[in-house]
Amino acid sequence: MDSLDPRIQRLNFPKWEKDLEKNHLDQLETYEVFVQTKEGKPYQHEGVVHASNSDMAFLFAKEQFGRRYTCTGMWIARSSDVSVSQTTEADKSVYDFVEASANSDQLESCEVFHLYKRGKQHRHVGAVQAANYEHALSESKKTIDEQKTVYNVWVIKSSDLLKSAEEDKVIWSTLPEKQFRDAIAYKGADKIKEFKEKQANS
């Protein structure tokens, strides 16, 4: 095989002998990423990364979702640690189907995320103290804004969320010195005009 790229040429690839089948979990587990785009705004689901643990997921997520836009904070949760409610239709809210329940077991903090519109992302609305996911929904129901229809709810135990630290804020200021990634940094109109004038005069 001849390549134009000398580095590829030097690799001297072996002949393709057999198919390579990737094993189960070769790409590791998936993690859900939540991003805060501006100080004071709610965290919002932004996407997924594959990683071996939440620290590695954080590293990938920072590169994937914190690279090109303003970002002031990031949360990471393993996909399997997210409890997902049913999805409702039309003007029915998930909370219409949640019954009040009391629970005196050991309580722990749970973060609640709402989906207000189909096609949009889940948004963080707050934390409740609850014994389990079901209890978290009934606790969350006490605090919701009745005016807004909630189509889907995610609950994640706070202890299952990796949150970027307040004192590490400096890691998010990556934009100002990288203006070469902005469309606005590239201006060509003057050059084209000058070129056309030269063409016309010659």
Binding site: L25, S52, S79
Partner: peptide, 17 residues
């Protein structure tokens, strides 16, 4: 590298959205 990162208690679930 991926083999080294894999651990026995991993389980795959379909990502959410």
């Amino acid at each position: 590298v991926r083999n080294a990162l894999k651990s026995a208690d991993m389980k795959y679930v379909t990502p959410l959205a």
